[in-house]
Each structure stands twice: as structure tokens, then as C-alpha cells.
Design a protein around this nucleic acid. Sequence first.
DNA 1: CAGTTAAGTGAACAGCGTTTACAGTAAACG
DNA 2: CGTTTACTGTAAACGCTGTTCACTTAACTG
Lengths: 275, 275
Amino acid sequence: MAPADPLPVTTPGGTRRERQREATFAEIVATAQALLTEGAELSLRAVAARMGMTAPALYRYVGSYQELVDLVAYEIDRQAAATFAAAADALDPEDAPGRLIAAVTEFRMWALAHPRHFQLVFANPVAESFCTRRELLTLATSGLLMTDLIHDVHRQRPFPIPALDELPPLVRDVVLDPLIPANVDHIPAEERGLVWIYMQGWNQLYGVVALEVMGHMDPRVIESGEMYLDVIRRFAPILGLDDDEGTLPRLLDLARRRIDADPSAIADGSPSHLR
Amino acid sequence: MAPADPLPVTTPGGTRRERQREATFAEIVATAQALLTEGAELSLRAVAARMGMTAPALYRYVGSYQELVDLVAYEIDRQAAATFAAAADALDPEDAPGRLIAAVTEFRMWALAHPRHFQLVFANPVAESFCTRRELLTLATSGLLMTDLIHDVHRQRPFPIPALDELPPLVRDVVLDPLIPANVDHIPAEERGLVWIYMQGWNQLYGVVALEVMGHMDPRVIESGEMYLDVIRRFAPILGLDDDEGTLPRLLDLARRRIDADPSAIADGSPSHLR
DNA sequence: CAGTTAAGTGAACAGCGTTTACAGTAAACG
DNA sequence: CGTTTACTGTAAACGCTGTTCACTTAACTG
């Protein structure tokens, strides 16, 4: 047992051997992700074969098949979140509402275009997954992004948020000290009602997108994104976006243009398992 | 090829052999369901073994493993829907709002108590499943129940529903002639806006419940049902349930009592895969 | 009764996650 | 330097999966 550094998430240095190990570890996750993206089934044997190894060797790096799945789920979420952030960054930094809608819409489009990835990250029964490293994994980095974007909207054009003593006591505890890793530390206590609003929004967004991805909805509604737009339309007032300056129509137009941008998503109405 | 009756869903008569066949078919589905309820993995071999048969024999009845899964999913949904209906029927027939909330709350409790069943029925990528018999399968019988209950609420204490020409054109087409099997035939054209409201409601309900079941939410919020109650609270006005006669508080109390009734659902905060 | 059809079996194929016992090799230590 | 230790990978095997194929056995049919 060497002194052993405290397990930094990404190990740049270390003994020559440790670097090699970290490299193949990364290759394993990358290979698994590639396999998944190609529509193939994710299996230890397939990953090993593609790397020119045998399946049991992988057990030197991951404890089980499930752990590998969790790892690529985390990785996929990380990359997807970057996509969402990029969609927001394509807009004027001053346009906080637009950035939020852009990111959220990008999330929806991503989910529809990559149903398997979506299910892996967002429709997976989290539990027991006390993953070795990266013990967060529980909640998505996407979540962190969304919290920030909503916070930005509030900072730029404040809207009423529930006071702490208006919230159910239990909810107050949760927003003050959330178990789920949301980086809300930079939100002052009196603004923590925002977190509850965020949860409500995420709840609604998740509902539509999940139903759409699973195909539990009329194909025409999915393709047109009408239900998704409806959710935005109904949630916007909560964020004070229903002003008299045409903000909401502009946002809806923004979303609609993004939706019409790639009709590829679900062509024939059957999401199916491919892509 | 005998004349062959037009495939009634449940074949009572027929040649003696056909009755036998239908019986073992039912036994297969029942056995599979039992296995699933016990927490065991669903597999053709396990089902066959429990029935005293071998796996290949099952292929005389189901075309593939996936088809068996679809069949038990349909069956589970059917039985669960009966539970929800029973919860509604426990109330005064005149109390349409109460019946709706009772059924919906029962749905949530059922989902939390049987996460695997929920995932099978409601979080399954529908697609390709052109099941031999019972070609509906696509959408849940639960859905039909909910539509009826909302319709009852509207019939008893009418609330404003969007006119057809207020709806986005595509949505209008959908509510007038839904692809997804909702028995909306008895709803007159001018009231078809109800269907859109139903979809909105189902969307929100699905969002909370799915997030709760998957564990993608703070355990304390799940256990207390605070987010679920919040969804009801926010959706009630749409159904005109926010009157001055204390209807909404009564409904919330109804739901809360049901929630507190069995704290068993998720004890330690980890839904896990059992039960 | 003879002929056809359906139900069920056993063996086999290809694949899966996982474990075990065993080589080789790179690092660490005296 | 040599020796020991720890690590990385392999081969073989176990038990499981869905699925197919050839074959028997029983039941129904003309």
C-alpha cells in the first residue's frame, strides 16, 4: 500500500504504470460508448474484443458489467450536457431566457435523436450504484447546467420565488441542504426557493421528453413538438417570461425553429431502438 | 384452415383443443407475471420450468421473448388499472374530483410499490410491437380510465376547455382522431379539447411518478410525496377545482392520507429493484 | 382406420456475465 | 545487480440466456 493520492477524478501524472492504467480505463469507457452509439448491444465481451482483449481482463478495471454501464452513462451525460451548454452559448450572454430555452430544447432534441442514450442516463433506476470513483453519478451534470441557467434568468430579470416559510417544511429542508448533488452553494438561502422551481420545471420537462422518447404519445404530437412547446408555454409565467414585450413568443419561436431544424429525429413515428 | 372465429380476445368456446391451447397460453402469461412479481428475472426457461415444460415449447405460443414481455406488460396494466378504478369506486359516485384524485394517487402508490412493473408498462420503448393478438397494447388501459375520470369531472362541474380552433392545428387533428387508442368516441367534437387537457395532465403526472420511481429525486421529496402533491396543486385550477368551497384542500388531504397510509413504499430511500 | 396436424422434447448454437487458476512482465526493494 | 512483489492479461470453464432444428408422441380429421 503506497501513500496513494486521494483518487483525483482525472489522473494526469503518477507513476508510469498508473498513467497506462488510466489510459486503458479511458479506452474501455470510450469503446463502450462507441459501441453503444453504433447501435450495438453493450457487452463486456464486445468491448474487450474491439480492444483486442478478452472479457475477463476488463474485470481489472471495472467491478462488474453494471459498473461499466454506469460509467458510460455518466460519460454520455457529461458530453450531452456540453452540447446543451453550447446551444446556450450560441446566444447572446445577456439573453438569459433565450439561453435557457435553447439549452432545454437542445436537451429534447438530443433525447429524441438518441433514445438509447437518454434511457441510459435518465430512465435508469438509480440505486445501489455506489460507484467506485465518481460517486456522484446519481444525478446528471445536465441538472447542474439547468439550475445555473434558471438562476441566470432570475438574476437578469427577477421574478417572484417562494419564500422559505411558504414552502412545505420538508421541501425547505431539501432546498437548503439537497442530497442530490446540485451545486446550489452559490445560491443564497433567501433565494433557495429557486431550487424548488427548478425541480418543478425539470419534472415537467422530463415528463414530456420521456413520453416522447418512449413513444407513449401520438406520433404527430411528438414530431411537431406541440406538447413540448405547451410545457414551455405553461411554465414560462412562473419564470416571469410572460411579459408585454413579446418575450414568450420569441422564445417559442426560438424553440420551434430548433425543432423544425432537424426533422430527422423521428421520421416514421416509431422511435424504435436504433440510433 | 377452419372457418376460424375472428379472434376474440378471450376465447371461451371452440374445439376442445383450442380451449386447451388458450388455457396453457393464459397459464404462460400468468406464470411469467408471478415470476416477475416475486422479483425473479423473467426468462423463457424459468417460465417453462415452473410449468413443467421446456423452453422451446413456449415458442408454440409466443413468437419471441419480447412478445411474452409485452403480453405480461399488457396484463399487468390491465390489473393495475382495475386497482385504480377500485380506488375511485371507493368514493361517492357523485364525487367526480375525489374519484379522479383517488385513482391518480393510487397510480402513484402502485408505481412506487412496484417499480419493475411500472417500468415494464410505462417506461418501455414501445415500438415494433405489432403484437399478434391485442394489437392495442401500445397504450395503457390505465389511460382510458383517466380519460373517463376527467370527463366525469367536467360533466359534473364544467370547467373551461380550449375550443378546437384555439388549439394548434395539428393538436386539433390529434384530439379529433387520435392514433393512440383512447376511447374518446363518446366525447362530442366540441368537447375534444378535454383530450388535450388530459394529455397535459398525464404528462405532468408521468413526470413526477417516473422520476420518483427511478429515484432521480431527493428521497425525502419522494417519501413525503411533496412533489406529487405540488403537481396536483398546480394542475387543479385547470380542472376548475380551485373553487371557494375548499375542494382543493379536501382533495389534497385525500391524497396525503393515501400517501401516509403506506409508508412501506420506499423505506430507506433506495427504490432498488426488489418488490 | 389412415393421414394430417399440433404439442412437446432433447440436443445444439451462439452469446452473455463471471470466476478461477495460471503465465508473463513491469515495478520496487535489498 | 538479482530477487521479490504486484499487476495485467489469458484460457478454460460454469451457469445462464434466447433461439433453431430434427424428432417423437399424441390428438384430431376425413
